Structure formats: C-alpha cells, structure tokens
Amino acid sequence: LVRYRTISKIPQITLNFVDLKGDPFLASPTSDREIIAPKIKERTHNVTEKVTQVLSLGADVLPEYKLQAPRIHRWTILHYSPFKAVWDWLILLLVIYTAVFTPYSAAFLLKETEEGPPATECGYACQPLAVVDLIVDIMFIVDILINFRTTYVNANEEVVSHPGRIAVHYFKGWFLIDMVAAIPFDLLIFGSGSEELIGLLKTARLLRLVRVARKLDRYSEYGAAVLFLLMCTFALIAHWLACIWYAIGNMEQPHMDSRIGWLHNLGDQIGKPYNSSGLGGPSIKDKYVTALYFTFSSLTSVGFGNVSPNTNSEKIFSICVMLIGSLMYASIFGNVSAIIQRLYSGTARYHTQMLRVREFIRFHQIPNPLRQRLEEYFQHAWSYTNGIDMNAVLKGFPECLQADICLHLNRSLLQHCKPFRGATKGCLRALAMKFKTTHAPPGDTLVHAGDLLTALYFISRGSIEILRGDVVVAILGKNDIFGEPLNLYARPGKSNGDVRALTYCDLHKIHR
C-alpha cells in the first residue's frame, strides 16, 4: 500500500512540481520508500527539464536528425535550378540546329562534286560548318556529364541527390541515346576521305529529338503553341524528305545512260545542264529549293507536275512521300480545326451564355430598361472574369491554397485601402477568403433606401454616388468604403439613402 501511494504521487509531482519531503505519510521509514524516492526525484528532475525545454521552444527539443539540413553532394545540380533551365534551352537550340543542318550536310555532301578544292585539302579548321559541328559534339558530351550530376524525382516524389543513384537512373534511361548522339564521328573518321560515311553517321544526332519531343509535351495545353509546333514538325519532315529526294537524284545521276532524272530535267529547265562528264548542272541553292518544293507539294497532295519522278527509285520514294503525307494530314492537320476551336472556345461560351440571357429575357418578357441593365451587367461581368467562376475553380483546392490565391487576387485593395494598413498577414488572409466580388454598370442602383444592410462594401474600381431623395450626399471612388460596420450592432440596419454607380464599378463586399 505504501508503495502504491508513493507511485500514485508521481503525476502530481510531474505537473505541480511538489516535493515529496513535505508529505508526512511518505516520510515513514520503510525500505521500499527509501529505494523508490531517489528514482522519483530523478524522474521528476528529468520531466521538469523536458517541460522547461518545451515551454522555452528551444531548438534542442527536436531530434538531432530533424535539425540537420538535407545534404547535397558537391557538384550536384538541382533539376529545378536556373542554371539547369538555361542549359536545357541551350541544348534545345543545338538539337534544332542539328535537326536542320545534319540531314542537309549528309545529303548535299554525298558524292558532291561542286567546283573547288576537296575538304581534305583545305583542312578541318577552315570549314565553318565542321567547326560548328565540333562545338555541338562537345556541348552534347558536356550535357552527358551534367546529367550524371543532376537530381531527379523518383516514384515516391522524392528528390534524389545521391550521385550513385543518379548515375544508375541515367544509365537506365537516356544515357545510350545521348551517348550515340554525342559521338564525334568527324574526329574519329577525319582524314579518311569518307565524307559520305561521316554525313550518314552524323544523322545519329537526330535521336535527341525524342527527348525534345517529350520536353515539349508540357506545352500541349496551349493551343497556339501546339499549332506552332505542328507546323514546325511538318516543315521539318518536309526538309528531311527534300534532303533524301536530292540524295536519290544525286546518286543516280552519274550512272544513268539517259538523262531522265529530276536533276537533269531541272538543269535543262533553268539552262544549267550537266555536261557529258557529269559536272556542271544547277547550283546547290536551286537543287535544295526545288527538292523542298517537290516534297511540300507531295505532302499537301497538290502535285503540280513541273517536278516529277521519272526513275524507279524516284517513283518509289514519291509513293512513300504520299503515304507520309496522308498520315500527316490525319495526325496534324486533322487537329488544326480542334485547336482553332479551342482557341476561340471563350468567344463561343460568351455567345452561348448571351443567347441564354436573351432567351430568358424573351421568355419572361423583361421590360426594355431592365433588359438593357441585365445585358450590360452580363457584358461587364464577362469582360472582368472571362466567364470563369472563381468560386467553382477554387473549390477543388485546399483552404490554405485558397487563402493564398484570394490574398493575391485582392492584393491591390488590401495594400491601398486604409482600414487594412497594419493588419497582420493572417488577418488579411482571413479577410480575403470572405470577400465576394460584384460588378455594376453605370446607372445601376446597388442599394435602395430602406434596404437591409448586411454587408460592408469596398470599391475596387469606378465611382458611385450616394443620394437622399434627389440630393447627392457624397461621391465615392476607388478604395472608399460604404455599408454597415460589421458586428457593431446586434441587428442589421437599414439604408438611409440610395447608392448608384456612376461608372463601371468593381466592388468587394463582406457579409455579416
């Protein structure tokens, strides 16, 4: 019993810090008490220290592992850092350059016999395009090294910054494609005289377009951006097909006994025919423009016929181009109408809503002055909100995010209106959640004399007048207030005048 009563005193000691020596009952000389009392004092002292730490809000209350900052290894790049964003855009520009100039170089340097010394005699450094290609190869190699040090988000939505895990993730992902696209074939085969082989191998750079397509997928929600990307894709495919079309004609031209190829026909049409040795002929500019003209006309199913396939190889390629053109029509131009419709969806919704308003007016036989006010209010409210119901949009977000959005939407009023000066951010967040926005066209009466005042109004834009009878008592403008002081009276009061809008007004109100 003594032991039980001794232990039962522990909660009292913990909360009230009572010393055991003052209790005459606990001072009985028993061996059990002498053993338990020192333990009680020690526990009391420890609990006292913990309570003191909690009340003082000291940093040592938290466990040590929670006080440590997340460790980022040296030379690790955050995937959302500004440097990584700028670097990704730079790589994107280099990939676009590669997609345009690599097929052009591979096709127009394929057994090209233009006048001038061969590239091997001039030297590697004197070729501007080769120098640019070398810079692109170096940048792609540097990009691989950067990807080995860039964080990523795993399946659990955690940012991984450990170098080993980053390397394994990159090896399992895009490393092989990036490595093949970054191989400097110019340096590996330079001086061997195989410019045709170098041009063909350099087309491996186009593998990076797969990554670019995935990154550009984030802009699919913007109709104008999608339309622009589709047109660029169409032009890029036409450019690639033009390079292939020229390569076919250029390879067949020296081996044909009869002059029936499209390059021969082009030379005869523009007065620059090929001679018996295969030299001469149109310039590279004429060849490229004509090839691009043929691919565009074939892809769009126009086909004027002034550039036509004559050999079997050219006919087979033309059939493939027609098939590609039909697929592009289905996948690209078939979506253009939907994209344009999405661009004008706001206008369509406006006309639909206006039609419903006019049908309501016609069905209920609203008189002319009231009908005009109804239409003007709808037009003004639509121009202010673009038909978007803010309350319906915010309803799907958590309250903390709703408060931040409301604070942002009402920031101008909260910053410049005098009653809100000096208020804490928590108070402003709470008030912003209570605001209701209303609009009024010129001549609209917001409050009639004798109406119950259940709200306090803040003028965000425009001006109003307060009338008693036919006498203008006051004219209020931006950041002015009218209405009933909230919670100042037990019952809502009545208006002693009319409140009429002089201009288009936007008002925020808080109800009782």
Rank of each mutant, 00 (worst) to 15 (best):
L67E: 03
H73L: 05
W75R: 04
I77P: 01
H79K: 01
S81H: 05
L92F: 01
V100P: 01
S105L: 01
S105F: 13
A107R: 01
F108E: 01
L109Q: 09
L110Y: 05
P118E: 03
A125K: 15
Q127S: 08
P128N: 03
L129P: 01
L129F: 08
D133G: 07
D133W: 01
I138G: 02
M139T: 05
F140H: 01
N154L: 05
H162F: 08
P163C: 05
G164R: 14
I166V: 05
A167Y: 01
K172W: 04
M179E: 01
A182P: 01
I183R: 01
I189H: 13
I189Q: 11
I189P: 13
G191H: 14
S192N: 13
E196W: 04
L197Y: 10
L200N: 03
A204I: 05
R208W: 01
L209I: 05
A213N: 04
Y219T: 05
Y222G: 05
A225V: 09
L229A: 05
L230T: 04
M231R: 01
M231Y: 12
C232T: 05
F234N: 01
A235P: 01
L236D: 01
A242S: 01
E252H: 03
Q253W: 06
I260V: 10
L266F: 01
I270S: 01
P273M: 01
G278E: 01
L279Y: 14
I284C: 01
I284D: 03
I284P: 01
Y288K: 01
A291Q: 01
S297A: 03
S298N: 01
P309W: 01
P309G: 01
N310W: 01
T311I: 01
T311D: 01
V321S: 01
V321C: 03
L323R: 01
S326N: 01
S326Y: 05
M328T: 05
L343W: 05
T347C: 04
H351G: 03
H351K: 06
L355D: 13
V357E: 02
R358N: 07
E359W: 01
P369H: 03
R371D: 05
L374C: 10
E375P: 01
Y377W: 04
Q379N: 04
H380Q: 05
A381D: 14
S383N: 10
M390W: 04
N391R: 05
G396C: 15
A403D: 01
D404C: 02
I405L: 03
C406G: 07
N410V: 07
N410Q: 12
S412Q: 12
P419H: 12
F420Y: 01
F420V: 02
G422M: 11
K425N: 05
R429C: 06
R429E: 01
A432D: 03
T437W: 11
